[in-house]
Design a protein around this nucleic acid. Structure first.
Lengths: 143, 143
DNA sequence: TACAGAGTTGTAATCGTTACAATGCTATTA
DNA sequence: TAATAGCATTGTAACGATTACAACTCTGTA
């Protein structure tokens, strides 16, 4: 799927979401920083461009984008809600050492069991925790 | 796996975790209420038996049990950490209407992609959201 | 009986998030 | 251009789950 800024702007129009400067900037940040940022990260970074920016606006914008299906809310840890502009199904791996979140492909649909045939599934999430290759090799160095 | 109360008591001993009355009760509650309770639920219910119970004790106990690998922490929604005595791999489905959390079997290991071969995976989570059969049929009634 | 160590308790602090009211902006109409 | 309505933004206050911390209690040992 094409996740360019232009594509998302169009998509917002079709959803009747008006594009203020602040919303534009949040969207732009998400498309250019695919690191699953937190509200804090987005706010701190955008404040450099928009000194009057309010954190409430960031929260509001992200809620609107999520409701419109344009961003996916990722909750791996308590007190650390993150946002992903890539809403296609994929897994997340969080390194318990460095905190980085990695994407990985996973065909979750192929595993949905018969038990859920009578359920309506709206949202699918897969996330792992552990150690990334870099942190693993760092640990070995200190042996 | 045998998840009886007796089994868990033994397991705690092997991990050198002493069994106070409060910890015993938390463990007992978890084995008898497989509904993935929140701290609030556990605390409120146990307070009937132990009027002096402190919520801090519930938090402490759950942290110790989680660190010992005896309970699994489930975070589906922000501000709603839940605890599962069943630490075997399985998926969770949360109904967005009634809030119930359903277990379902899933062989996630069969899907782990090559991309993660260099990662050390310590924790695997799968959770879906949507509508359960009961809430679905209730909605149809109101059509 | 004294003591040490661990467990429990209650309060206060923390921090992410939300509620809310005031202000600002934008598009439409006359 | 001016007036207006409606939505977006802002800042502060409130909220609520969780954690920090210090005092107290319990248990087992010498």
């Amino acid at each position: 799927m094409d996740l360019t800024f232009e594509y998302l702007k169009k998509k917002l129009k079709t959803k009747n979401i008006s594009l203020s400067y602040q919303r534009l900037k949040v969207l732009e940040y998400l498309t250019q920083n695919r690191c699953h940022p937190t509200v804090e990260q987005i706010f701190t970074e955008l404040q450099k461009d928009i000194p009057t920016l309010s954190k409430t606006t960031v929260y509001n914008t992200l809620r609107i984008l999520a409701e419109a299906g344009l961003v996916k809310v990722i909750i791996i840890e308590d007190k650390e809600t993150r946002y992903d502009i890539d809403t296609e199904d994929h897994g997340h791996f969080k390194c318990e050492c460095c905190g980085t979140i990695f994407d990985f492909p996973i065909d979750i649909d192929s595993l949905i069991p018969e038990d859920l045939s009578k359920f309506k599934i709206n949202d699918k999430n897969v996330y792992f925790k552990g150690l990334c290759p870099e942190c693993l090799s760092n640990k070995n160095e200190f042996k």
